[in-house]
Simulated scan of single mutants.
Amino acid sequence: MSALPLLDRHLDHAVPASRAQRTWTPSDGPLPSIYLSHGAPPLLEDGTWMRQLFDWAHGMPKPAAILIVSAHWESAPLSVSGTAAGTPLVYDFGGFAPHFYRLQYATPDASALARRVAGLMPDSEPVHEHRHRGLDHGAWVPLMVMYPLGDVPVLQLSLPTHDPDRLLDLGRRLRPLREEGVLVVGSGFMTHGLPFLTREHWTGGGTPPAWSADFDAWAAEALERGDVDTLARFATEAPGMPFAHPTVEHYTPLFVTLGAADRPDAPTKAVIDGYFMGLAKRSIQTA
Results as ranks from 00 to 15, higher is better:
189 F>A: 07
189 F>S: 07
189 F>N: 08
189 F>P: 00
189 F>M: 15
190 M>R: 01
190 M>G: 00
190 M>H: 02
191 T>R: 07
191 T>D: 08
191 T>S: 10
191 T>G: 09
191 T>L: 10
191 T>A: 11
191 T>H: 06
192 H>W: 09
192 H>R: 12
193 G>E: 09
193 G>M: 10
193 G>L: 10
193 G>Y: 08
193 G>V: 10
193 G>A: 11
194 L>P: 04
194 L>C: 07
195 P>I: 10
196 F>I: 14
196 F>K: 13
196 F>M: 13
196 F>D: 14
197 L>D: 03
197 L>N: 03
198 T>Y: 09
198 T>L: 14
198 T>A: 14
199 R>P: 01
199 R>N: 05
199 R>K: 08
200 E>V: 08
200 E>K: 05
200 E>F: 02
201 H>K: 05
201 H>Q: 09
201 H>D: 06
202 W>T: 11
202 W>F: 10
203 T>C: 06
203 T>W: 04
203 T>N: 06
203 T>Y: 04
205 G>Q: 13
205 G>W: 02
206 G>D: 02
206 G>T: 05
207 T>K: 15
207 T>Y: 08
207 T>E: 15
207 T>S: 15
208 P>H: 13
208 P>D: 12
208 P>Q: 13
209 P>A: 02
210 A>N: 13
212 S>E: 12
212 S>L: 14
212 S>A: 15
212 S>D: 12
212 S>V: 11
213 A>E: 12
213 A>N: 06
213 A>S: 14
213 A>V: 07
214 D>W: 06
214 D>P: 07
215 F>W: 10
215 F>Y: 14
215 F>S: 08
216 D>S: 15
217 A>F: 04
217 A>M: 08
218 W>D: 09
218 W>A: 08
219 A>E: 08
219 A>D: 10
219 A>H: 08
219 A>Q: 11
220 A>H: 14
220 A>D: 13
220 A>S: 14
221 E>L: 11
221 E>T: 12
221 E>H: 12
221 E>F: 04
221 E>C: 09
221 E>S: 13
221 E>Q: 14
221 E>P: 06
222 A>G: 03
222 A>P: 02
222 A>R: 05
222 A>K: 03
222 A>F: 03
222 A>Y: 00
223 L>T: 00
223 L>M: 06
223 L>F: 06
223 L>V: 00
223 L>G: 03
224 E>F: 02
225 R>G: 00
225 R>C: 01
225 R>K: 06
226 G>C: 02
226 G>R: 05
226 G>E: 00
227 D>M: 03
227 D>Y: 01
227 D>Q: 01
227 D>V: 03
227 D>A: 00
228 V>P: 04
228 V>C: 02
228 V>A: 01
229 D>I: 12
229 D>V: 13
230 T>L: 14
230 T>D: 06
231 L>D: 06
231 L>I: 09
231 L>Y: 08
232 A>G: 07
232 A>T: 04
232 A>Y: 00
232 A>V: 03
232 A>D: 02
234 F>P: 11
234 F>N: 11
234 F>Q: 14
234 F>G: 12
234 F>L: 15
234 F>M: 15
234 F>Y: 14
235 A>D: 02
235 A>I: 01
235 A>S: 04
235 A>H: 05
236 T>F: 00
236 T>Q: 03
236 T>R: 01
236 T>W: 01
236 T>V: 01
236 T>H: 02
237 E>R: 15
237 E>D: 15
238 A>D: 12
238 A>G: 11
238 A>M: 12
